[in-house]
Amino acid sequence: MNKWNMIIDVAKCHDCNNCFLACKDEFVGNDWFPYSVSQPLHGHKWIDIMRKERGQFPLLDVAYLPTPCMHCDDADCIKAAKDNAVYEREDGIVIIDPLKAKGQKAIVDSCPYGVIWWNEELDVAQKCTFCAHLLDEGWQQPRCVQACPTGALEFLHVDDGGMQRVSESEGLEVVHPEYGLQPRVYYRNLYRYEKSFVAGSVALEDTDECAEGAKVTLTNDSGQVIGRAITNNYGDFKIDGLEKDGKYSLEIECAGYKNRELRVSLEDSRNVGVVFL
């Protein structure tokens, strides 16, 4: 049985908000019985874009995490709802029945991803439906995916085995795998949002030139090499994919110059600044 899955590339999202706005266009003031009732005019974010800056001026990057409903295979909202008010379809989409769910505020609080919203006026919990009402009419993608200009959002209609293979071969990840809820929203390049980096610039003091081709080695307290980099023509280096809250040693080697070693205490991503050799 083919099921709907979403893949989000964190490295391709630049926060244009087309997905957020397309979702509002589809659902504000529109009832799509029996899938959903109208989203309130303001306030809901059925796809919520979380934002992160990593590093410090001038070495930094920015990452965005579009966060729709995860359409979990083992959803907490289904368990928290009374009267089968929340159910998973055969194609994997999780729907909150807008009539049965009336008054059930517990559904909102049940979601550890925080993607369920309360509609005060209509007294019902609401969330992203993967635009199931459109998919059932023959659309191949929900509104957000259609509106995305960079290809950050992809939508796949494939069986669970097939999705598993894609996930493994392309190194996809889910957010909060430890919840164990089997989301069907996967992410590429999630490290951009969740991991940290150490960056810096190496310069040659005697000639006042950028040190190109310097070797940078990052080791942890046990002496294990965690990452390596070679500085580019601006002397810049970046070692990524690190856990937050780490203590590291950074060693910089450049032929003809004395090595430098720095201690780096990483709370979050760090630009260690300019290191003169």
């Binding site: 926060d15 244009c16 908000n17 957020f20 706005l21 509002k24 266009d25 504000v28 005019l41 303001h42 306030g43 974010k45 874009i49 934002r51």
Partner: peptide, 20 residues
């Protein structure tokens, strides 16, 4: 970034809810 000059800003538009 999100409006086209004043087109789309204020006036109760959804753009007001864009975080940036």
């Amino acid at each position: 970034r999100f409006s086209f000059h004043t087109m789309g800003d204020a006036k109760g538009s959804w753009l007001n809810e864009v975080k940036d």
